[in-house]
Design a protein around this nucleic acid. Structure first.
Lengths: 250, 250
DNA sequence: ATATAACACGAACATCTGTTCTGTGTCAAG
DNA sequence: CTTGACACAGAACAGATGTTCGTGTTATAT
């Protein structure tokens, strides 16, 4: 004759014990004793607490160190969530913090003036004006210190497929390789523009991103001052905040 | 007559005790007893361990619960770093995890076919094809489940200032308010396009983002099928990985 | 109905653990 | 040299703590 089987899963008291274990450790920094568990979970006998702890151990919710006071390690809580060790948690914070890069917003880029380039003493921790970009979106090799952001002002760069209000992520550079998009100051025209850069012999060809438009050929390379390379363009159609007054967070 | 004063700061044994406290708690999940500290820090007498613990408590490195076994909370380690409680650490992880949103890449958008819209059973946890975007870049009110990403294929959307290879972040929607940019399928022309949406009486005006281009007027609203709203456009000039084969991480 | 396992209570016990007390040696300032 | 704070050792003790044993109750499969 078969006797009754224990129902699978956690009973009310199992759950209570796990809650006590989690709460106690969170507030005190160390696990409770059997008697403390009994008091908080309203289980009057130490042997009964031990009885439940044994079951929780078999079910993989806790680990116990035999004969050691407070020798209980919580592995999963009542909700089944895995409990992290402090060390692991710290590592996770570290890893997650690296997932986002805060790129300083150095200013605005307009056609009528050279593009701003932050100096080496630029305050990178200006909380008010930074653009947050997931690191996975950026080329891994970058040094984050070389990156800065500019907000585009005006419609003058539509031939580069860049609109008023767009944010361009730039990398410091004074020269470029063929095929890279750069911000250039054209000294003769007194104009800033975003173009694909091609050095062809002595002259420089600046190709618009819009394939329907014609390139600019500059015979004297001294008239082409490279302000930085364009790494990314971000356009927010539905702004988190009002357009230009509040800090831009991307 | 003045007797000698204790040197300020931590002695070798202070440091040793703190190291033991940190290491023991990291490996066991609970603090050591006085005798365990003594063994590991090579301090033979319990009273001497107690003597040092008292000093560390006065210096603010630890907290002690009187008369409780293992009643030691580490506040700062030997390097002076503040030790986080498990709960705090978990909250930090939580907060940091929320800083980045993984948006599923639902497919490609081309002019010649309706834009893909993921079904409600879409697998959001497809690790291979997701775009990571900092939450601060997105409008806060969004339900993340409503967002998906599309990669633009072809040059057909240059009038929307969107280029081949760009990534558009979309939000599910079947209708739009005036001024919002939407992806629409034009049933009569059999064409997908990105335009600013304006309902004017019975007819619909679709305005290109490029201000130099002319709007499309559609007299029969049934020919305009809204596939989704455009929330953001991301253009990566220097790709982290090869253009289309590998997973896109933004 | 009845055997059996699950659930429950309380007491007893050996050990663990924090605390305290006494004592010793060292070392620098007076 | 004296003095007194500091560093250290060992022992003793009261209370805390995990464990075990005996016993009783309850629910369930047969």
């Amino acid at each position: 004759m078969m006797a009754r089987k224990r129902k699978p899963g956690l009973s009310e008291r199992h759950r209570k014990v796990l809650d006590v274990l989690e709460g106690f450790h969170n507030t005190n920094g160390f696990p409770p004793t059997i008697r403390e568990i009994g008091q908080m979970a309203e289980i009057p006998s130490t042997s009964l607490v031990n009885y439940y702890l044994k079951q929780l151990q078999e079910m993989g919710y806790i680990e116990r160190e035999s004969r050691r006071s407070r020798g209980i390690r919580l592995l999963k809580n009542a909700a089944g969530e895995v409990i992290q060790q402090v060390q692991q948690a710290a590592e996770n914070v570290q890893r997650q913090a690296e997932a986002v890069l805060r790129i300083p917003l150095a200013g605005r880029i307009v056609a009528s003036a050279p593009a701003p380039v932050p100096g080496s003493d630029f305050n990178y921790f200006d909380e008010e004006s930074a653009v947050e970009v997931a690191r996975s979106l950026l080329p891994g090799r970058e040094k984050p210190e070389e990156l800065y952001a500019l907000e585009v002002q005006g419609d003058s760069m539509i031939d580069a497929m860049v609109n008023d209000g767009d944010i361009v992520i730039m990398r410091r550079a004074n020269e470029a390789r063929n095929g890279e998009m750069v911000a250039v100051w054209l000294a003769d025209k007194e104009e800033t523009t975003l173009k694909y850069f091609y050095k062809e012999g002595r002259r420089v060809r600046l190709q618009p991103a819009n394939p329907t438009m014609q390139p600019i050929i500059i015979e004297d390379p001294r008239h082409v001052q490279i302000q930085g390379k364009v790494v990314m363009v971000i356009r927010q159609l539905e702004r988190p905040v009002s357009r230009s007054a509040a800090p831009l967070a991307v």
